[in-house]
Amino acid sequence: MIPFITSGVSSFLNGSVFPVLLAAGGIIYFGWTYYRANKIANRNRKEVQQDIINRATIVLPKKDYYVACAGSKDTEACTKVSAIDIQQCNFCDSNGKPLDLSLYNCYVVYGDSMKYAGINDNDFILVPKDFNLDSLKSFPEILVIRYREQNENKPLFKVRRAWYSGSIEDDLVKAAQSIMEMPKFNRLTQQEGYKGAEWMIRDLLEKRLVDFKHKYFKGGECQDQYKDIVISTTFDTVKKEIHFSIHPTILIVGNVEESYNVKS
């Protein structure tokens, strides 16, 4: 029996099957171990990277940004607010491509009056540095506008959704009616605070236009630099009403290209 086993083992070890089996076994061990190690390494990388991102808003350096008011300026909002340095993050466009942040000015929104336009309190909004008024061809467009009166420790900018661009000498009733016929405006009429077309026009003529004339007219005439205007809407979060506003285009800083919800 033993010589039989010994001769069998000896012929197996000296044959060609043994080295093939050894090589195949080695390759299987190599492949299987590599596969398991790679899987564990990839899982660990995912966990480590997610942890970095989760902690990032606490440990990232901060920077001051101008506040853009979405609501009344007479609030607790300041001129600037401290928030995470956007250069330490990736901000993507709607296609997922990272933006070149050096081409934008960043503002932090204060207030909720732009919520129907998708912009909320504490959102980061990016406004191209090379904004040109001529690029405003289609409406509505979300704009950052400078306040005419710059008060110390108060916001210098506001954000509004503009629907019309023209002159203060235009027929504002026609302008308002053309705005209210737009499909996107129709969605606004479903929201809380919309008080009807007649109310909107009456408010525009009796309140907003009067305010505009008070600020920008001299001797019954509009000063030349304030004649070009945009008409915007905003949601007054205190009175809970949507109304028009009139702004001279000379105070427009730029259009909001993207808005981001950033926890910091």
């Binding site: 990277q49 970095i52 991102i53 990032a56 808003t57 990232l60 330490q88 993050c89 990736n90 901000f91 993507c92 466009d93 709607s94 997922g96 990272p98 336009a117 998708g118 912009i119 909320n120 959102d123 980061f124 509505p140 467009e141 979300i142 959704r161 996107k184 969605r187 909001v256 993207e258 808005s259 981001y260 919800n261 950033v262």
Partner: peptide, 13 residues
Amino acid sequence: DIKPTFIPNKIND
């Protein structure tokens, strides 16, 4: 380096 990445909100809809 891993950076926090933010996707834009849908605005002006």
